[in-house]
Amino acid sequence: MSIQHFRVALIPFFAAFCLPVFAHPETLVKVKDAEDQLGARVGYIELDLNSGKILESFRPEERFPMMSTFKVLLCGAVLSRVDAGQEQLGRRIHYSQNDLVEYSPVTEKHLTDGMTVRELCSAAITMSDNTAANLLLTTIGGPKELTAFLHNMGDHVTRLDRWEPELNEAIPNDERDTTMPAAMATTLRKLLTGELLTLASRQQLIDWMEADKVAGPLLRSALPAGWFIADKSGAGERGSRGIIAALGPDGKPSRIVVIYTTGSQATMDERNRQIAEIGASLIKHW
């Protein structure tokens, strides 16, 4: 067993022997301040990774656009098919120029040779490549099948209805392509620590998230040296922004954090800054 596999296998073990965790309302004060600064709703939840206990939450059962955070769930569904012998990570998928959609920095470079399922998941999570996500959605049967996968996990809230990039439209009061912070946090925890996926697939999923290259201005910008984070960000229309993450000190994750916002007129930089400040408060009061 590799060191990384050992780390993920012992996530519940280490967490069980940690000192009790206590909620700190100071972080919620910052979440509410972010709402004021952005002029928009902000949803927040913080779960203990081992027990699933909610440590703090704000608007945990209000719907927010998922945006690209759905790509972690998508690759979880792909990995479940791999575990069941219905898919192979090494299978190569070929596609054409007509398949390319807006923001496809990886797939646009491989029109000639195609990409493997493993490479597509890596591109979808680490670079948020939209064509990679659409190609992977095709392998599982489309958005409705991802929703069905989530329902089978016990998540009857999260739903995907459309493809990239239309799913980022974020129309107010439109339930399409949305989740709730509580539902997303619980589902992410199941994917990373539950028995739904094999140990190898859980490790692969967290490795992809740990290698995320496009979430630097968010929670990662607030992390002290030595902290662990595996995350996936999302951005959408109407001032929408979000991030889902597993993080913790001492090089291992111990909490799940989900943050979503929508309806702001603020710039992307300002949305990023507010999420980073929430992260800084979380870490300060850990």
Rank of each mutant, 00 (worst) to 15 (best):
A200W: 07
A132G: 05
P253G: 09
S80Y: 15
A16Y: 08
S281T: 14
G154F: 04
L28A: 10
M67R: 01
D177Q: 01
S96I: 10
A123R: 01
N134E: 02
L10F: 09
E277A: 11
A170Q: 07
L28R: 08
T179H: 00
S240E: 09
E175I: 14
F64Q: 02
D177T: 01
C18Y: 06
V257K: 00
S240M: 03
I278E: 00
I171T: 14
L205G: 00
D83A: 05
D207Q: 13
D155Q: 02
H110F: 11
T116M: 06
D99W: 07
T147H: 07
R63T: 09
S254L: 10
H285R: 11
S2K: 11
E26I: 14
S57A: 15
A84Q: 13
E145A: 14
K109R: 14
G90E: 15
V78D: 01
A124H: 00
P25Q: 13
Q37I: 12
L111W: 09
K71S: 00
G142W: 01
T187A: 09
S233N: 01
D231T: 04
L191E: 03
S2D: 07
Q4V: 08
S254I: 10
D231Y: 04
G234Y: 02
A280E: 15
G279Y: 03
A211C: 13
T158E: 00
R118V: 10
E195L: 04
T147N: 11
A215S: 09
E270S: 12
L223D: 02
R255L: 05
V72T: 09
V214G: 06
H156I: 15
E108F: 08
R241E: 03
A16P: 09
R238Y: 13
P224M: 04
R202H: 08
C75Y: 00
D83Q: 09
A84C: 11
I275M: 11
I283F: 11
A225I: 13
A15Y: 15
V214E: 05
V42E: 00
A123G: 06
V82W: 07
T178A: 05
A40L: 05
M67Y: 02
D212H: 05
M180C: 14
F13G: 07
D177H: 01
W286N: 03
S2V: 08
H285S: 10
Q37D: 15
A246H: 04
E169G: 14
F6N: 10
I278C: 04
G216V: 07
L205V: 06
Q97K: 14
S104R: 03
S264R: 05
R241S: 06
S2Q: 13
L100H: 04
A211M: 10
L218Y: 03
L120Y: 02
A170D: 08
I125K: 00
L218N: 03
R189I: 07
L282S: 06
G114I: 02
